[in-house]
């Protein structure tokens, strides 16, 4: 390295910036508003945008007469029908029956799914016995089982709730089982060194670790429950939304059929919102991409 001159005659001008260097412009005092890679922040009620657009489209088609009311009645016709059904108490009655079936099936299927996933994930024998069966069953659609369910359980409420429970069980089991397998081995080591009891291990490490999967399973399971409900309610039912729709079809009441459809959609949408709210609360410890 050259020695520095002791008394320089004049300070040299700063070297000119190389022409190839391109400065990055950042406005001082204004931090980047957000990370470019994060998912967009959610806006309250933003999920309603899609349904609202669909409703608008449907209304426009109906007003212009482009939509034959015999094919699909206008939204306000359906609304009138709904008001009429509520006034004479039919809708509430059918809704209560349907919701009861769905909830009973959901509860049964969810509990069975979690318990069997725990048994299969935490014990070797359970893993061989249960998981093999479940994986085999995955190839058979639930709806293909209905004839057998009718044969075994008859056509009463027991069969209906069992079909719904079965439809909920599989997504629940598969999600929880996958989540269990993904629990970090480091946490298992930690449990070992802290000499956790089996109960504490299950309660503090296994269940919270599998919770994201459990909630995903619950979302899929809820959807599956409504789907199974629609099918079983058209089998020899005497009450429920599905029965109402089947009856309306026999009398060619498209507006009532439409009300049934909208009720199913609202139930599905509403329950998904509910599960998502539950998810946000239960997983608030997590920093994640989706937020």
């Amino acid at each position: 390295m050259a020695a520095l001159p002791v008394s320089a005659p004049a300070p040299a001008p700063p070297p000119a910036r190389s022409p190839t260097s391109r400065p990055v412009n950042r406005v001082a005092g204004r931090p980047a508003a957000r990370n470019r890679f994060l998912a967009p922040r959610s806006v309250r009620g933003g999920l309603l945008l899609g349904p609202a657009l669909l409703l608008l489209y449907w209304s426009v088609l109906s007003v212009n007469g482009w939509l034959d009311p015999r094919v699909l009645p206008a939204p306000w016709t359906a609304l009138d029908a709904a008001i009429e059904l509520i006034r004479d108490g039919q809708l509430e009655r059918h809704l209560a029956v349907s919701a009861g079936r769905a909830l009973a099936g959901l509860a049964l299927g969810a509990v069975a799914g979690v318990v069997l996933a725990l048994l299969s994930g935490l014990s070797e024998l359970g893993g061989y016995v249960i998981d093999g069966l479940v994986q085999m069953k995955r190839g058979v659609p639930i709806l293909a089982l209905i004839p057998f369910m009718v044969l075994w359980l008859g056509i009463g409420e027991g069969m209906k709730i069992s079909v719904i429970a079965l439809a909920v069980f599989f997504p629940m089991y598969i999600q929880v089982h996958t989540a269990l397998r993904a629990i970090d081995i480091r946490y298992v080591e930690l449990a070992e060194t802290l000499r956790l009891s089996h109960a504490a291990f299950l309660l503090r490490i296994v269940l919270p670790g599998a919770l994201p999967g459990l909630l995903t399973g619950l979302r899929f399971g809820t959807t599956a429950a409504w789907l199974a409900l629609v099918v079983v309610e058209q089998l020899n039912a005497t009450s429920g939304i599905g029965y109402m729709v089947t009856l309306a079809r026999d009398y060619a009441q498209t507006d009532v059929m439409l009300v049934g459809l909208v009720v199913y959609a609202l139930l599905g949408f509403g329950s998904d919102l509910l599960v998502r709210a539950l998810e946000r609360h239960a997983l608030r410890w997590r920093r994640s991409f989706g937020r």
Partner: peptide, 12 residues
Amino acid sequence: VIFQDARLLPWL
């Protein structure tokens, strides 16, 4: 035991 990572359970 203290590990190289703090190994805290994120949900507690």
